[in-house]
Design a protein around this nucleic acid. Structure first.
Lengths: 194, 194
DNA sequence: ATTATTACATATCGATCGTTCGATATTGTG
DNA sequence: CACAATATCGAACGATCGATATGTAATAAT
């Protein structure tokens, strides 16, 4: 589906592919032009400059991520079910936006002010969602961790790390892995203090 | 201490600083030369080319990491104490090699064959240490996770993610944070299946 | 003391980088 | 049809990139 993209959309698609595999600095605009079999000038016509293209990619991904995750966060479920649903959806979404997320992590160091803002915002939004979620668990008497923030970071670390090591050719299916990760997080969160 | 470094050592130190903040591709050899107030040619004299310098950095860090971690892995302790000690040391080491580890993660995409080998080796070594550790916990009847490998990855994710969000100016001390992370991991590992 | 090796500097090369410019298709609109 | 707006092209720009060639000063070895 959506094979014969043209112009702007094709450009973004190709950029996601190349930025995620070679990094922003490691990808020249000539690489991009060649990969989509078009002229260099289109990048400047549509996005102003190379960084404009990067920003478009990041903006698109950050919207998709936080919007969907926010939807789940607003659902009306029992605390524990809500939490499970959230983590499960987050893993799914991370998979879907695998390449875009990788760009965030690979190139967060050399972003412009605008890029940093997008990056900070999406990180802050997602962290906030988890903190709120953990606070609800605490209210329900289910949370036994000292620091909610650190716990939220630990959850993000577990999920985001999954993107680095998961290989489709492995023995376990994505669903089985997701289940195991959810379980690990759940016990990490609920476990009683020693 | 060790301020007035010269030649090779100074070069490596400056390279760690710049590669970790701007990335490999984002750092030119002229940047490095300028930062250490020396001529470009030294890089080629000592390391052959730009990538040789990167390899030297990675090799140094990977040795320091796996050697020290391997030492702890060989200690003779009760399973649970052994595991705690391992995770604690790992967090300490990650802090010490913060910048070098960041280089690994930032630039793993555009490494040469040799660089990939170093990267794969250190990742494999550390994963192996944790898998062995988790197997020991399982034997002792303390582990309740389905997949040892996934659990090991989850632990690595939690620890490595800490490097991304930790800021010295935060409220909690590094020791308090480390304790909280160890606790999170511990319960994630030991938690019973539902 | 002579020599060989190491440690640095200068100047420069060709390739590639991001960007700009002016021109040409293509499309939509009255 | 005319004509404006949009989409795309190829050629060129100055800057910077990694790398090299060729030198000299410092140090170590004999």
């Amino acid at each position: 589906m959506s094979e014969n993209l043209k112009g702007k959309d094709k450009l973004v698609k190709v950029a996601i592919e190349l930025f995620s595999t070679r990094g922003f600095k490691g990808t020249s605009i000539r690489d991009i032009a060649q990969a989509m079999d078009m002229s260099i000038s289109n990048i400047y016509h549509y996005f102003g400059n190379k960084e404009g293209l990067l920003l478009a990619v990041l903006e698109h991904a950050s919207r998709g991520l936080t919007d969907r995750l926010g939807q789940v966060a607003d659902m009306d479920l029992a605390p524990l079910d809500h939490f499970k649903k959230l983590v499960g959806t987050h893993i799914e979404l991370s998979d879907y936006y695998k390449k875009e997320v990788k760009i965030f992590f690979l190139d967060e160091e050399h972003l412009s002010k605008q890029g940093e803002e997008i990056n900070n915002q999406v990180q802050k939004d997602i962290l906030k969602i988890y903190c709120k979620e953990l606070a609800a668990l605490k209210t329900a008497g289910l949370l036994n961790r000292k620091s909610i923030t650190i716990t939220a970071f630990n959850i993000l670390g577990t999920i985001n790390w999954y993107l680095r090591w998961y290989r489709p050719e492995g023995q376990l299916s994505r669903e089985e892995i997701a289940e195991e990760i959810v379980s690990f997080i759940l016990h990490g969160v609920l476990g009683s203090q020693e």
